[in-house]
């Protein structure tokens, strides 16, 4: 077992009286694809929002073990004045959304350029006077954007509006955009939702490539079990906000508790 990149320790998330996640523990191993599955309403997206810094977990902590030490996600987002969910991204966690959130009225390249705001020269004066430093940074950013567009087979759509792309390409664009933030961990919220079988196959290939070539760790929420079983190295199953199973795909697939949760039958009947 390699070192974990992300550690979720005893996380409980409450919204008023509703407990969305109760005492969740799991690890995301570096360089592996980890899947988070569970029936609807199991608290997967809530967990995701905690990990990516959109929610502050009510209890417990989420630790990211990066090259530059360990960072507590909850601590980042509650930091006074400068704190916020954007710090989770800057720490190296990128994400996509269940319902696609692109900048619809901006071009595809611009979507990717926004994601690279950490690498471009953001100084107002250098941009207005178009200094050499600014031009070089901008050129590199555009090239990087095209690199990712080519990886995602979107290069032909580079100068179209993001909102006019077909659904499947919007999904891929969202992944490309997340990759442009140079993340260590990418969290994909139902990336295969609404894709046809061919597109799903392509997506699984893309994910494998990202993992293999770009030293990337992937955390994915997915309902397509075929895809999950095919790509993931490690599966965590949530039900009613709690982890009911955690292990390799084979282990999880044969776990009576998981079958019970998905099929709604009692454990005796499964035997």
């Amino acid at each position: 077992m390699t070192a974990p990149l992300l550690e979720v320790n005893n996380v409980t998330m409450r919204f008023g009286g509703i407990v969305a996640n109760r005492n969740v523990n799991f690890c995301v191993e570096k360089g592996k694809i980890t899947a988070l599955i569970g029936p609807n309403g199991a608290g997967k997206t809530t967990m995701f929002n905690c990990i990516t810094g959109f929610y502050r977990a009510s209890e417990g902590n989420i630790l990211l073990h990066g090259e530059d030490g360990t960072q507590d996600i909850g601590g980042l987002i509650t930091r006074p004045i400068t704190g916020g969910s954007h710090l989770a991204t800057r720490a190296g966690i990128a994400r996509t959304f269940q319902n696609i959130r692109l900048f619809r009225e901006m071009s595809v390249v611009e979507n990717l350029l926004v994601a690279q705001h950490r690498q471009t020269a953001n100084n107002l004066l250098s941009g207005v006077f178009s200094t050499p430093t600014y031009r070089r940074a901008e050129r590199e950013a555009v090239d990087r954007a095209y690199y990712w567009l080519e990886r995602m087979h979107l290069a032909g759509d580079a100068n179209r509006l993001a909102g006019e792309l077909p659904y499947g390409r919007q999904r891929r664009l969202e992944i490309a955009r997340a990759m442009c933030t140079s993340p260590k961990l990418i969290c994909l919220d139902e990336p295969a939702a609404g894709l046809n079988p061919a597109e799903t196959r392509e997506l699984s290939e893309v994910l494998q490539i990202l993992r293999a070539d770009h030293d990337l760790t992937v955390l994915v929420i997915e309902h397509d079990m075929g895809l999950v079983m095919r790509i993931s190295n490690h599966i965590v199953v949530l039900d009613h906000g709690e982890v009911i199973s955690d292990g390799t795909p084979e282990h999880v697939a044969n776990d009576p508790a998981v079958i019970a949760a998905y099929l709604g039958v009692s454990e005796e009947e499964v035997q």
Partner: peptide
């Protein structure tokens, strides 16, 4: 006009389009 093709201007427009997506990309929205 320069701002519209500059990172800062792009971030403004991205913020107008979708603030949550912006935060997910590490843009300090405030």
């Amino acid at each position: 006009q320069r701002l519209r093709v500059m990172p800062l201007g792009r971030m403004w427009e991205a913020l107008r389009e979708d603030e949550i997506a912006c935060r997910s990309l590490g843009v300090n929205h405030v």
